[in-house]
Design a protein around this nucleic acid. Structure first.
Length: 284
DNA sequence: TGAATTGTTATCGT
DNA sequence: AACGATAACAATTC
């Protein structure tokens, strides 16, 4: 569930408690979640000091003093908790880092999809990630280049982390509503003004999410207020805030998808490409 | 009780 | 080759 704004909020909250701390112990009850493996990770992590905590896409990145990085991906149900040593362990605690101040960082993850990874080279580890949508370099032109170079449905493209890093199901639906674009529109068909709108919508929605400390829709992620500002996600049947039409639920890319059928009109049935005249026909 | 859910990856078909 | 569909992962909630 954590998407870019939630991960950013988590990073900001934990940064003061983690930067400068040295890892004393590393343990897990779910070895499959640790890459390359628990022994390797423990050897690489114990005794190391966290230089900087930051985010790339939905990845939480620990830069370690002297080189090397620990990556954590929360996937659908992962969350960080910090407890004092000896305190009772919260439910679903899977992985724990004992710190030099006596506290323990926990990765709690009911569904066990979260990942912990030690890597030497951050660049190559995250090489497949697309651009950061909030970076200055992510301009409408940059988005236009991406959209024009693909022939693909809009929503699956926006969910693809190799295309743009950080968007998930909630913020994609919100961005498409804001841009007044149907999730099944084909990327190549977007007009320049629609690209401009989508670019602005993606950034606005993510910035709003961060400003509200993310979206809380269940117990997995707590403390956010963005759910109060969602315009389509989880609002099936409720009136569109812009035009009053009931919000409609559909399925796109095997994901629950929410649109206003009036503000986000269905794409014209895919225009079939007129068969190109062959050279022989031309010469005839 | 079964379906939906959520992010990502692998795999298969077009 | 690029893309879509599907299943798998695991557990909880509805």
């Amino acid at each position: 569930m954590p998407e870019l704004p939630e991960v950013e909020t988590i990073v900001r909250a934990f940064r003061p408690r983690l930067e400068g701390r040295t890892i004393r112990t590393f343990d897990t009850s779910w070895p499959r979640s640790v890459q390359p493996n628990v022994e390797h990770a423990r050897a690489a992590l114990v005794g190391r000091t966290v230089q900087r905590l930051h985010r790339r896409g939905k990845w939480i990145v620990f830069d370690l003093v002297g080189g090397g990085h620990m990556l954590v991906h929360l996937r659908m149900s992962g969350r960080f908790e910090m407890v004092a040593g000896g305190e009772t362990t919260p439910r679903f605690a899977r992985t724990q880092w004992g710190l030099d101040d006596g506290r323990v960082l926990l990765l709690c993850d009911s569904r066990k999809f979260g990942r912990v990874q030690y890597v030497h080279d951050l660049e190559s580890a995250l090489a497949d990630l697309g651009p950061e949508p909030l970076a200055r370099t992510f301009t409408a032109n940059a988005l236009g280049d991406i959209l024009r170079s693909r022939d693909r449905q809009l929503k699956p493209l926006l969910l693809d982390q190799t295309v743009i890093a950080g968007l998930g199901n909630i913020y994609v639906d919100e961005a498409l509503f804001r841009a007044e674009l149907h999730p099944l529109r084909v990327t190549r068909s977007l007009r320049p003004y629609e690209i401009e709108r989508l670019h602005g919508a993606i950034r606005a929605v993510l910035r709003n999410g961060i400003r509200r400390n993310g979206t809380t829709i269940d117990w997995v992620y707590l403390g956010g207020r963005m759910q109060e500002y969602l315009r389509v996600y989880g609002r099936t049947g409720l009136p569109c805030t812009r035009c009053g039409t009931p919000i409609k639920a559909l399925r796109v890319a095997q994901r629950g998808t929410h649109i206003c059928p009036t503000c986000q009109p269905r794409p014209r049935r895919r225009t079939r490409r007129r068969p190109a005249r062959t050279a022989s026909q031309k010469t005839l």
